[in-house]
Nucleic acid binder design. Structure first.
Length: 836
RNA sequence: GCCCGGAUGGCGGAACUGGUAGACGCAAGGGACUUAAAAUCCCUCGGUUCUUGUAACUGUGCGAGUUCGAUUCUCGCUCCGGGCACCA
């Protein structure tokens, strides 16, 4: 046993971390290139918005990522692990207004500061691939892709009612409206009519939906959320002829089987036909009044409450093409113009909304789909929305709902008044923003030529004033020098587009840019072919719809433009939980923010990393606990002392092979055998934890157990001496297994224990199945399912022997008494249950 | 309302395909070392009861069920978190 009294060494994390960070930077340890001979692994964490300083969410996200990156490197993979900045966005403009700093300056300064913070965490990035989306060398390629999409008809301009946030003075995509409020500033969103640019994401709706099935490596929850967001419904689009009028009303329904139950028609207040229907009739006034009222109500009403159902009769009728019924046409406040056709065939017996409406305005309720318990229109208190057998539906009577749907659609198609139709909840993506700090949309508006794309050789359209010395950062529509141009086609005076792109555009393809960050094209196709798809993507679940849907969409766009050869960007997705404190999300307003910077200064990066990995599994929320950090720090100190007090056991051996081959399992003493076994069990356990679900918390507790056992076996109070080879193997294993989590610490001790190779590429150990085997185990003896005794037995004991032993146990016989044994269940190596 | 999660000691969390509930850590209590403190080390630690034991009973949100045996499977609830929300 080694016990040289030496000066007590302190775990000087500051010096250790500075030393290795400098070393990694100088030797570019994490720089990678395509290497066809090696298997690649692309690990990506969601890049941060450069808000000023890193927060706990970043620490957690990037700690998790770094463990995986380092682990995979030790597994022999060629690991791409890049970092960059999602650098466009409103906070830069707000900061500019508040502090009089140009958004570009503010952003680049934040990036510099945060880059140092990330380096201080010891994260193993290939910094040569760093990108910032606000840099013209990044967004120029986005502009080029925009032009190419325009050419393909996947980008278009239209005037629509948009969600407008007054505070941010910009349009929001529907995905960015949360509970009727702006996702960023929480202001109530108001409708506004204006022109904007749109990406035809709806063209890809089916593929985005179908390919969700390929995403086996994604959390089921995220897949479901996207599926619901796309919201595909299949049904029938059907024309109802308006009585005494040329016009038809087209409806969409997912329940063609209920079409014989139609008793009225509901139109959205914005429906274009309403005007024609009421013009010059006695109903014109009341209907107009109703529409006006409803529009005001809609604007005022918070989106989270449903207003009561109202409607008004237009005085007109349309004809149900199936049975020739005259159907009264109403305008109703609950019909949405944005979904389907803005017109709904109302079937009160089978739709709850229609039912409420019908009861209110005394309209007939006509059940046509009968469940097992027959519906009666007089006694019904709610609509029956389930399936059933058709009744009162002409030749379709008697069919099931499923059969009837098919038959009725076929009938409509044959007669030519309807057809099978699919509707999506997903809308096209409006990408225009009336802001300064974003990618300029590369278009010139000419009175003669229309919207003309800026020619390729004139790209990028650079944000005016964004280069030092910095100039104006007013929204572009206020910058005359910027928008006054001549038309590239005809040379006449023209106006440059002043909208910038939604910042979600930049983050939709950055993972591709990393594969060839300085390429003279949007994507380095060859490099992308090697590196993509991303093998593991890690980020917050708050991006489950927005970012992840857009990124999937862009992948398909870039594929169809010939840049990428993949359908899906992220093979595996890990959504990490939030970091919370005192049960609530950390936020300035709650005053419960913990600054990682202070912690790193006080305990070092390794301790902070260790705690954030240890406190909870990645997908769960992590409750921050200052005392827990202290505990992680203590653990590292304990390991530090342990290594130092046994450093001499490394001296006599060759550092590379470690002399593990000298260990012969059957020649080991009892103590040695136990420690050797524990060492290999720990290897197995840690490897399993990482491989199956990245549960680093259990991996770490496994190593802690090993450390505890080493201390018990080789510490001051040890009863039996422990062999040098076994001890050395155990100590080395601790360092190797812990390296991905606390890299500076382990590398330093690795060096101290006589090794000079970097742990970065040290082979990850395999457990020896022989070493892991227990030769004795504890078997539980139950009587009627209750634990009554425990037996120490040889691992290879036979079933009969163990039964006999169990029945002979004094505590067991006491419980059995004189009752007859009915049955004995033996689970090998685990337990015996005696049923009496 | 609909769709997903989740609920285990004082706390964070363990427990493989049904088989020893509470690993590991934190906190707490006791002790050693010290003039003292810090640091470190050792012991105890779900609850109740007593006869203080290798004790009994009880215990994984609640109530049933399946099973020799349920934190784990089934059914019905409660509460908490997330998503969607008049989607025809």
């Amino acid at each position: 046993m080694s016990k040289t009294t030496q000066e007590p060494l302190k775990y000087d994390f500051k010096a250790i971390e500075a030393k290795w960070q400098q070393h990694w930077q100088e030797t570019k340890s994490y720089k990678v290139n395509e290497d066809q001979g090696r298997e690649k692994y692309y690990l990506l964490e969601m890049f941060p918005y450069p808000s000023g300083r890193i927060h706990m969410g970043h620490v957690r996200n990037y700690s998790i990522g770094d463990v995986i990156a380092r682990y995979k490197r030790m597994r022999g993979f060629n690991v791409l692990h890049p970092m960059g900045w999602d650098a466009f966005g409103l906070p830069a403009e707000n900061a500019a207004l508040k502090h009089g700093v140009h958004p570009a300056q503010w952003t680049y300064e934040n990036i510099s500061y945060m880059r140092e913070q990330l380096k201080a965490m010891g994260l193993s990035y290939d910094w040569d691939r760093e990108i910032a989306t606000c840099h013209p060398e990044y967004y120029r390629w986005e502009q080029q892709v925009f032009q190419q999409l325009l050419k393909k008809g996947l980008v278009y301009r239209k005037k629509t009612t948009v969600n407008w946030c007054d505070d941010c003075a910009t349009v929001l995509a529907r995905e960015q409206v949360i509970d009727g409020c702006c996702w960023r500033c929480d202001q109530q969103v108001v409708p506004k009519n204006m022109y904007g640019w749109f990406l035809k994401i709806t063209d890809y709706a089916d593929e985005l939906l179908d390919d969700l099935d390929q995403l086996g490596g994604w959390p089921e929850k995220v897949v479901t959320m996207q599926r619901n967001w796309i919201g595909k419904s299949q049904g029938l689009a059907c024309d109802f002829q308006v009585e005494n009028e040329e016009e038809k009303i087209t409806i969409f329904t997912t329940r063609p089987d209920t079409i014989y139950g139609v008793t009225f028609m509901s139109l959205a207040v914005e429906h274009p036909l309403v005007d024609t229907l009421i013009a010059g009739t006695e109903h014109e006034q009341p209907v107009r009044q109703f529409i006006e009222q409803t529009l005001v109500e809609k604007q005022r009403m918070a989106m989270d409450q449903e207003p009561e159902k109202h409607g008004v009769f237009t005085g007109r009728y349309c004809i149900n093409p199936f049975n020739g019924d005259r159907v009264p046409i109403y305008v109703a406040n609950f019909v949405l113009m944005e979904y389907g056709t803005g017109a709904v065939m109302a079937v009160p017996a089978h739709d709850q909304r229609d039912f409420e409406f019908a009861r209110k305005y005394d309209l007939p309720v006509r059940p046509v789909v009968q469940p097992e318990e027959k519906l009666d229109n007089n006694s019904m208190e709610a609509a029956w929305e389930g399936d059933g057998i058709l009744a009162d539906s002409a030749e379709f009577s008697g069919l099931t709902s499923a059969e009837a749907k098919k038959a009725i659609i076929a009938h409509a198609e044959q007669k030519g008044f309807g057809k099978r139709h699919i509707t999506y909840r997903l809308r096209d993506w409006g990408v225009s923003r009336q802001r300064y700090w974003g990618t300029p949309i590369p278009i010139i508006h000419c009175d003669a030529c229309g919207a003309v794309p800026v020619p390729d050789d004139q790209l990028p359209v650079v944000l005016p004033g964004s280069q030092p010395p910095y100039g104006s950062h007013a929204p572009l529509h206020q910058q005359e020098a910027f928008y006054t141009v001549t038309c590239p086609k005809c040379g006449q005076a023209a106006k440059r587009e002043t909208d910038t792109m939604d910042t979600f555009m930049e983050s939709s393809w950055y993972f591709g840019r990393y594969t060839g960050p300085r390429a003279d094209a949007p994507i380095d196709t060859e490099a992308a072919k090697y590196w993509l798809a991303v093998d593991q993507y890690i980020g917050g679940v708050e991006h489950a719809i927005l970012h992840l849907l857009y990124a999937r969409f862009f992948t398909k766009l870039l594929r169809d433009l010939g840049y990428l050869g993949i359908d899906e960007p992220f093979n595996n997705l890990l959504t990490q939980g939030m970091v919370i404190k005192d049960g609530a999300k950390m936020s300035k307003s709650k005053g419960n923010v913990v600054d990682p910077h202070d912690l790193i200064t006080r305990y070092g990066a390794d301790t902070v990393r260790l705690f954030s990995l240890f406190a909870a599994p990645p997908e769960r929320d992590l409750e921050w606990n200052a005392q827990g950090v202290e505990g992680s720090f203590r653990f590292l100190n304990r390991v530090f002392r342990l290594m130092h007090s046994h450093s001499d056991c490394f001296a006599a051996f060759d550092g590379e092979t470690g002399g593990a081959a000298l260990i012969q399992v059957d020649e080991l003493s009892q103590t040695d055998r136990q420690l050797h076994r524990k060492t290999h069990q720990t290897i197995q356990r840690v490897t399993d934890s990482i491989e199956t679900n990245f549960h680093f918390n259990t991996a770490i507790s496994g190593v802690m157990e090993l450390v505890n056992q080493i201390t018990a076996a080789a510490g001051d109070g040890a009863k039996q001496p422990v062999g040098q080879a076994v001890l050395r193997e155990a100590l080395q294993t601790v360092l190797i297994l812990l390296f991905p989590m606390v890299p500076h610490f382990c590398q330093e001790l690795w060096e101290l224990t006589g090794h000079n190779d970097p742990l970065d590429h040290h082979r990850w150990p395999e457990h020896d199945p022989e070493a892991v085997k227990e030769d004795e185990l504890t078997v539980v003896v139950q009587v009627n399912g209750k634990v009554r005794s425990r037996l120490q037995v040889a691992a290879d004991i036979g079933e009969e022997d163990i039964k006999r032993k169990a029945l002979g146990d004094e505590r067991v016989t006491n419980f059995i008494g004189d009752k007859a044994v009915k049955k004995i269940i033996v689970v090998k190596g685990k337990l015996v249950n005696i049923v009496v």
